[in-house]
Design a protein around this nucleic acid. Structure first.
Lengths: 129, 129
DNA sequence: CAAAGAAGTGTAATGATATAACGTATGTTT
DNA sequence: AAACATACGTTATATCATTACACTTCTTTG
């Protein structure tokens, strides 16, 4: 079933992502996990694929990078606020806007299967400086 | 100023994008413009960069591809409905949701500079089949 | 428990996307 | 015409992602 235990490689990748507040690229992950025995990009990409299917991570399209999922309800669409100054990525939910977007394109008969919502800008900490 | 006439390369890339209803990658564009004398990726990327700065095209992050802008007000954020079956990309505006998203992250002090909103799914024509 | 099947592994090679560095040309401003 | 900004073409390289292959490890089930 979908309830297989995570394998060593999958757990390593997930732990590394969870330990980082920012998004990491596959090659970032590879570099940081060489000490654990990982050697090739495909090992990381395979772990990322499984983790993604299980809803444990998200891909940040505008950065070609990945981040651990911190949502409680991962049926809902996830949005991301990305600070271009410090790299921090905050996940957020947007139920009202999600419905708004879905119905906006629904008017034209479009059936939404997945939403990518990524806001770039400056986080509170960086704006304060 | 910002009102320079488009150069030959820029015009070629823009025309090619405008003629296509879908998003094209930089390498798609390069292949389609070899007959016009383009030879290297960087020539396409340079044109794309200028066109993007002038608001004449958009980058579709989730496809690593580009599309001509068909918006009248390109101050407003643009959203895209992407049909994963036929590849059609429709640009749309979403003023209400845009404000909703902006204020959602604004609660945490985030200043939004740019939004990526890309909806994947199935267009009306493909759903009808 | 043994066989069968599904999922995962490591290695190597390659494909796809994007940028850097260089010297030259062209167009605009003064 | 000199000075400046922008764009050009060429070459090389960086970055992101997948394919193919042979082998291993789990899980199910007969």
């Amino acid at each position: 079933m979908s309830e297989r235990k995570l394998t060593r490689n999958q757990q390593l990748v997930l732990d590394r992502l969870a330990a980082s507040g920012s998004a990491l690229t596959a090659y970032d992950l590879l570099d940081q996990l060489r000490g654990e025995g990982l050697r090739a990009p495909v090992q990381v990409y395979r772990a990322l694929e499984t983790l993604g299917q299980r809803g444990l991570i998200h891909r940040i399209e505008s950065m070609n990078a990945f981040i651990a999922c911190c949502a409680h309800d991962h049926q809902a669409a996830a949005g991301f606020a990305i600070c271009d100054d410090c790299g921090e990525v905050a996940e957020f939910a947007f139920p009202a806007s999600e419905e708004g977007l879905r119905s906006e394109v629904g008017k034209a008969g479009f059936e939404t299967r997945h939403m990518t919502v990524e806001l770039h800008g400056r986080c509170a900490a960086c704006a304060g400086r």
